[in-house]
Design a protein around this nucleic acid. Structure first.
Lengths: 154, 154
DNA sequence: TAAAATCCCATGTTATACCATATGTATTGT
DNA sequence: ACAATACATATGGTATAACATGGGATTTTA
C-alpha cells in the first residue's frame, strides 16, 4: 500500500474529434490501485480544469464536517461549490477519458490539452493559456522573492 | 523513528546519446529501502537539475491538503510550480535514469553530468558550470567569513 | 432509430528491462 | 609487498513492453 502519491510533470496530449484524451500514464498509475476514474471540475479562479482523486475530495468533506473555525467558512463554501461541479470520469482500458463540453469550454480546450501536476491535484489547460500562466507565475515569483538566489546553496 | 539519509559527495558520470546516466550508487542505496525512483526538476534559480525523494515533495503537498487551503489562491505559486516541473525517474537494475530533454537543456548537460550532494536533495550540473559555481560559492564563503582564511593553510 | 458514448483492436513511436562488457576498487593468498 | 582474484559499479547495446493515438464496432440513451 502506498501513501505517497503526487501528480507531477507537464504533459501535452491530443484531444480527438470525439473529445477523448489520454490521461498521462503516471497519473493513471496513481489511481489504478484504488479505482479507474478521476474526478474533474472547473477551476474556481482560473480558465482550466482541475482533477483529483475522489478520496481527496472525501478528505475535504470530512474537514468541513469537523470545522469549527469561522474564518475557514468562506473557503468551505468554495469547497462546497466544487462538489456541485465535480463529476467522475472513468478511463477505459487504453487510458482515455472523455471530458464534458462544459469543462472543455471553460478551459478553451480544442485540439490539445496540457496536464499540469499540482501535487494532490492536477490541472488541464489549453496550451497557449498555460504558457501565459506559467510565465506569469515565474515572473511573480522572481519579483516577490529576490532572496531566492542566495538561499539556493545554503 | 526517523530514517537518516543524506545525499553527499560529488560524482561525475557520463550521459549517453539517449540521455541515460548512472545515478551514483551511494544515492541509490539511500533510495533503495523506500523505492527505486527519484524525483528531478529544474532549479528555479540556477542552471542545474535538482533531485530528491518523492517523500520530500509529498510533505509540501500534505501541508495544503485541507479544506482551507486546497482551493485557495493563497497557495504559494512557486511551490506549486515545482510539481508541474518535477517528474519521477525510476532507475533500472543497473542504476540508470533517463533524464528528459527539458532538464538536460536547462542544465546545459551533454556528455557528462556532475552529481552534487546537498543533504536532503542533490543537484546535477554541467561540469564546467559546476566548476564555476563551486569557485563562486567558495569565494563567497571566504569573503563573508574571514575566520575561515586562517584554516585555509593548515 | 439516430446520435452519442463506450469498448476493442491496430499501429508507430518511445521508453524500459535486460544482457554483455569494461573499468575500477577491494580482498585474498603467497 | 605484490600479484591474482573477486566484487561492485559504470557504460554500451538491443529486445521487449508500454504508451499515445487513430479507426471502427458495439452498446447505450434520448
Amino acid at each position: 500500500m502506498r501513501k505517497v502519491f503526487l501528480f507531477m510533470d507537464t504533459i501535452c496530449n491530443k484531444v480527438d474529434g470525439k473529445g477523448r484524451v489520454s490521461l498521462p500514464s503516471d497519473y493513471r498509475s496513481i489511481v489504478k490501485d484504488l479505482s479507474s476514474e478521476i474526478v474533474c471540475y472547473r477551476s474556481l479562479s482560473l480558465p482550466c480544469i482541475e482533477g483529483c482523486l475522489e478520496e481527496t475530495l472525501d478528505k475535504l468533506a470530512a474537514d468541513i464536517e469537523n470545522s469549527t473555525d469561522f474564518f475557514s467558512e468562506a473557503q468551505d463554501n468554495l469547497t462546497n461549490l466544487v462538489f456541485g461541479d465535480a463529476k467522475r470520469f472513468p478511463f477505459d482500458s487504453t487510458g482515455r477519458i472523455m471530458l464534458s463540453e462544459k469543462l472543455l469550454k471553460h478551459a478553451q480546450i480544442t485540439n490539445e490539452a496540457v496536464f499540469v501536476g499540482k501535487g494532490r491535484k492536477f490541472q488541464i489547460w489549453n496550451p497557449e493559456n498555460w504558457a501565459k500562466e506559467e510565465a506569469r507565475i515565474r515572473a511573480d515569483a522572481l519579483k516577490n522573492r529576490p532572496s531566492l538566489r542566495s538561499k539556493e546553496n545554503e
